[in-house]
Amino acid sequence: MVPYLLKRIAMLLPLLLGITLITFTVIHLAPGEPVEMQTAMSPKITAETRQRLRAYYGLDRPLHVQYGLWLRRIVRLDFGRSFAPDNRPVMDKIKERIPVTLSLNLIALLLEFGVALPIGILAAVRRNSLLDKGLTLFVFLGFAMPTFWLALLLMYFFGVKLEWLPISGLHSLGSNKLTAGAWFLDLAKHLLLPIGVATFGSLAGLSRYIRSTMLEVIGQDYITTARAKGLSERCVILKHALRNALLPVITLLGFSLPGLIGGSVIFETIFAIPGMGQLFFMGVMARDYPLVMGILVIGAGLTLVGNLLADLCYSLADPRIRHGGG
């Protein structure tokens, strides 16, 4: 187990390096020098300051040297200072935004899993029935509906018409004076729509995947054997089929993180949630290069960690890897 883990972690390093390389390349596609932006912010910046900045970012050096310098700083998680007028360290800005985005996405992921699982199983067990077709249509509707449109319609219906739910943000005004329970309820109410929309939109992939792996497993010999032994259908499906069908799903979960983080740009903009997606979009539009690079690297890094965790879960769940492998 431990050697396997070490091997997996060792494999991360080249991937991390690749992530930084691609990030660096993407940003340097843009015309103009990054330092232009910062110096342009202050009209009367002296030639000396400009030179200092150029030296700081190593812009007077060839590209590969610049990359090396940048890499050396980000190893220490120093992504430089934001070009925005507040001029704060990029890492600070990201740090205050990550928890929101990450926890929202993890909740959405759990919920997605919780809802997609029964849908997938039901659809597989009742393959080609009306129920299967209905569920298929339902999950695809979620996928096919432009998220911002669905979000606005729900906002209008539940927020403006029925007045059941708040429209946007994370907390009501004055929520800090509420009791813990009421505070939590208030937060939950705010999160219901964004998380609901995110979950609905991502059901299709997972539930269809579960359906097809279930179908595959159900066709296997050992299931036939289990049935032949006279076990109840319920037991066959839940105990034997599901366990085997779930294994590949774990990997899929790890890989769905980037999609969710990417989608957070839309949710956070429309629901006014101060997360990383919103920060990234603002950064991109304002050409805040250090911020954009920082978020790209960290976003991709998070996915790496997610994949590693998924792999670990997989190896814990699958005895073949635990004993035989690595």
Partner: peptide, 23 residues
């Protein structure tokens, strides 16, 4: 395949945004 792994780590929509907005 390592390149594929790396590309799969990025939130694709972030990459698209970055490129479109900067070009």
């Amino acid at each position: 395949m390592r390149l594929v792994d790396i590309m799969l780590c990025f939130p694709t929509f972030f990459l698209i945004l970055a490129v479109i907005a900067m070009l």
